[in-house]
Amino acid sequence: MNDSEGVDGIDRAILELLIQDGRRTVTDIAQRVNMSPSPVKRRIDRLERLGVIVGYTTVVDHSRLGATFEAFTELRFTGDTDVESITAAVTAVPEVVEVFTTAGDPDALVRVRVGSVQHLRQVIDQIRRGGSVIGTKTLMVLGTWRRSP
């Protein structure tokens, strides 16, 4: 089954409202899409069953918790390193937030969140000690912006 099969405009409107605020009530969503709460609840349940909605999350301001720096580190590995090993090389590092394996150079892009420049240095040193890592390049994040879906 195609993932978008059976997902109509009302479903997409419901999804947009949930993306904006995952704690939005079914009643509020129903009012905004001009439906009663029961069919909206059924649609949300169906979207969950289909795997369109895979979970709900909380957005945290990590700077208020001491993680004041974010950086992206490009990783290069030896030529015989498989993709699973690239991911496994960094997932044990708690400061690693995301790993993007890529085709081409670099082999992976890793997003890390740390409390200081010294902390970042320690994390990069830890990653570099991982077996097949042959090179890194780190870029500090100065600011962020995200497009609303």
Rank of each mutant, 00 (worst) to 15 (best):
T91S: 08
A88F: 08
T78D: 05
T138C: 08
R128Y: 11
G135W: 15
W145K: 12
G143A: 08
R128G: 06
D107Y: 00
D125N: 14
G104L: 02
T138M: 04
G79C: 08
A71L: 01
D82V: 13
G104W: 04
G131M: 07
E98P: 07
R129A: 14
D82G: 07
V99E: 03
L139C: 11
Q122G: 13
T101R: 03
L142Y: 12
M140P: 09
T138R: 08
E70M: 11
R121F: 09
V112C: 06
L142A: 11
S85D: 07
D107L: 01
T81R: 00
A88C: 09
T87Q: 09
G131C: 07
R111H: 12
V123W: 00
A71R: 01
V117I: 15
M140L: 14
V99T: 02
V83K: 02
R76F: 08
G130P: 09
S132A: 10
T78P: 06
L142H: 15
T78Q: 08
T91E: 14
G104Q: 02
V123T: 00
H119C: 03
E95P: 02
W145D: 14
R121C: 06
D80C: 05
S148H: 08
Q118E: 12
G115L: 06
T81M: 00
V90Y: 03
R76A: 14
A108P: 03
V110K: 04
E98R: 05
F100L: 10
R121G: 10
Q122N: 10
V123N: 01
T102G: 06
S85N: 09
T91Q: 12
T91Y: 14
V93G: 04
T101P: 01
E98M: 11
G131T: 11
S85M: 05
S85F: 10
V97M: 15
V90G: 02
R111N: 11
S116Q: 04
R146P: 15
T81H: 00
E95S: 09
V93E: 06
R129E: 07
D80A: 04
S85A: 11
Q126C: 15
T144H: 13
D125P: 11
A103E: 05
R129H: 12
L139V: 11
V93W: 02
R76S: 09
I134S: 10
G104K: 02
A103Y: 03
D107G: 03
T81V: 00
D125F: 05
P94N: 14
L120M: 05
I127M: 08
D107R: 00
T144I: 10
L142R: 08
L75P: 00
E95R: 11
D80P: 02
G115E: 10
E84I: 05
D82C: 09
L142P: 07
T144R: 14
I124G: 00
S85H: 05
R76V: 12
